[in-house]
Write a protein that binds this DNA or RNA. Structure first.
Lengths: 345, 345
DNA sequence: GTGAAAGCGCTAACAA
DNA sequence: TTGTTAGCGCTTTCAC
């Protein structure tokens, strides 16, 4: 297991020889067997089995220019990537779609901007046919890298710029936020606070904008910035309580932050939802369903968004539609959200 | 960003032409510039910059047979992989070591045995120079796949078989478990229970063995099997309390399970450590330091183990030592553990 | 020190 | 339907 294997892997040549056919025919069989007579197919198949032949990908890629592999690049410190269920769900969606189309998912981790050069080389080196990029912060250079590498890309979440050309998949953050606030107001709450995500990410900005759409006159003291971690949510909640002890509702920009906020509210003796109603965002079941009380939240279908990202990318990789006029160009996707009412509001 | 790039990437040929040298010389410069006169090096470098040349990896791999990429394969459902901090830490260690040696980490996710064929093809296809495999369960076929693919492999955790040849990195599970139990006994506890991990994994078995080394006569009722999740730990704790209400200590085979156990103990009104002392395993700080009370545990240096795995694999990939007699053969590594005392025991 | 040339293993025209 | 052949882009002897 530990030794480099010394027996060189068999080549197509060897398979062809053993089956008594030309390399071209062997290749045809290996790639599906279209247009090869049955008995030959059979012989080649047997030779493949007997020799344990597996095509050399480097050689194949060199001529086909396809890898059947897609990179997923996460612009986030590993720690958060691994601890935030959001990513896990999105990756699962991506993984499903990619696997269904026989593409390999290659996860590229970055421990910070220092790794970008390496990622850039990897992308430019032609290891993958496309890239999926997550969780961009303002001015992140990853998409530029990908573009420079000539790698088609789809971004998770609306990017900070808009060139009408960049493909992305996002949920209706702004609309969802509005719904959250409307729900709280419908409950008769009048001092609604907001725990925002990091404002260098569009998702946070969009949710804040939705909040402001409904409550344009909100006291700035009722808004605190978190960082999409439980601790950040807790910290923001503590700040808010200090600044506005009379608040009676909180809309947190993520379930994870909401869970931190709930902890602080409990510590301070505020009852939820009686004293303070709380609404989250995401509907990450493993979080929202386990808090005490269970979290009312705005649901976005994260796994589906992952699947859509992969789907969009795969379509972008297809040869440009020809002969079929009126095939719509590919465009970004914004998925709907909906309110899920549990115990916290 | 979304369009496949139509401008073909420049080749070495182009670089050579622009620099007015042969392809061979250009290649030498790109690969370090040994034995090329300075002015030529300079000209080639400039050409590379101006053209934005990046070597085509497929072509390079085809001749060198190196990818400078290592696969990390996880034999665990995605959900656990993403939610258990253990993996995150191990991957970080691996990532550090690999990056330091200019190797790319390629994370291969498996959603179950159904994906093994795909992973096998990927490995056999020669995309990577080696593989790191994690979290094996009994009879897992992943190592067999890797071997068949001819890919050198290092395994995280002692494998279930022993051929004296398979390289692995593990901590001293058995010794650590003994230390945990000794600590509890030293505290005067007399009814020590054990929450084991899934017994199809050697880490769980080894920890249980360590427990039994110290308490060979333990009532089987004092042992319950969990699954390395908080819920599993909670369930096991509930069982144990039911079966042996008089227990006064628990050694849990992981911090994550211990956190679940603590929750149950609190719910049932048992004070920790007064009524029941609890020791975990792993010392995952984000868990052990945050429980109430903070968890006394057996520390293993997970990140270091990841680093060692990568290091071992990289060494196994080096050309077999020649001319240097007495170079020791590579061997598996077992790292030490140590007790970290916090509040729970 | 530098260049010419021979492949690495495979696919895809093109001929037969 | 099958085989022949020409590369894909790169590294690496081997002459010069």
């Amino acid at each position: 297991m530990s030794e480099p294997s010394f027996a060189p892997r068999p080549t197509l040549e060897a398979v062809a020889a053993r089956a008594g056919v030309s390399r071209a025919t062997a290749s045809r069989v290996v790639n599906g067997g279209e247009g090869v007579r049955a008995p030959l197919v059979e012989r080649v198949r047997r030779a493949v089995d007997e020799l344990g032949y597996v095509p050399n990908q480097a050689a194949r890629t060199l001529v086909t220019r396809r890898n059947d592999a897609i990179a997923v690049v996460v612009a986030e410190p590993e720690t958060r990537f691994f601890s935030d269920p959001f990513f896990a769900q999105q990756v699962r969606g991506i993984s499903r779609e990619l696997t269904a189309h026989d593409n390999q998912l290659v996860l590229l981790l970055t421990e910070g901007a220092a790794d970008y050069a390496r990622v850039g080389r990897y992308l430019a080196g032609g290891h993958v046919d496309g890239a999926l990029i997550f969780s961009l912060h303002a001015d992140d250079s990853l998409p530029v890298l990908a573009r420079r590498a000539g790698v088609p890309t789809v971004i998770g979440g609306r990017p900070g710029w808009s060139d009408g050309e960049t493909l992305y998949v996002d949920c209706d953050n702004r609309g969802g936020a509005r719904e959250a606030v409307h729900h709280l107001l419908g409950l008769g709450r009048r001092r609604v606070a907001h725990i925002a995500g990091p404002l260098d990410q569009t998702a946070s900005v969009d949710r804040l904008d939705g909040f402001r759409d409904v409550l344009p006159e909100t006291d700035p003291q009722l808004i605190a910035e978190g960082d999409f971690t439980p601790e950040g949510g807790a910290r923001a909640m503590a700040e808010l309580l200090e600044r506005c002890p009379d608040l009676d509702a909180v809309f947190a920009a993520s379930d994870v932050m909401a869970s931190g906020a709930l902890r602080v509210l409990r510590q301070r003796g505020r009852r939820v939802p009686e004293d303070v109603a709380v609404v989250g965002f995401d509907d990450i079941v493993s979080v929202a369903d386990w808090t005490d009380p269970p979290l009312t939240t705005i649901r976005q279908d994260i796994e589906e968004m992952g699947r859509l990202m992969a789907h969009l990318l795969l379509r972008a990789l297809e040869p440009p539609a020809q002969g079929a006029p009126g095939v719509p160009a590919l465009s970004s996707i914004v998925t709907p959200t909906r309110l899920v009412v549990r115990g916290s509001a």
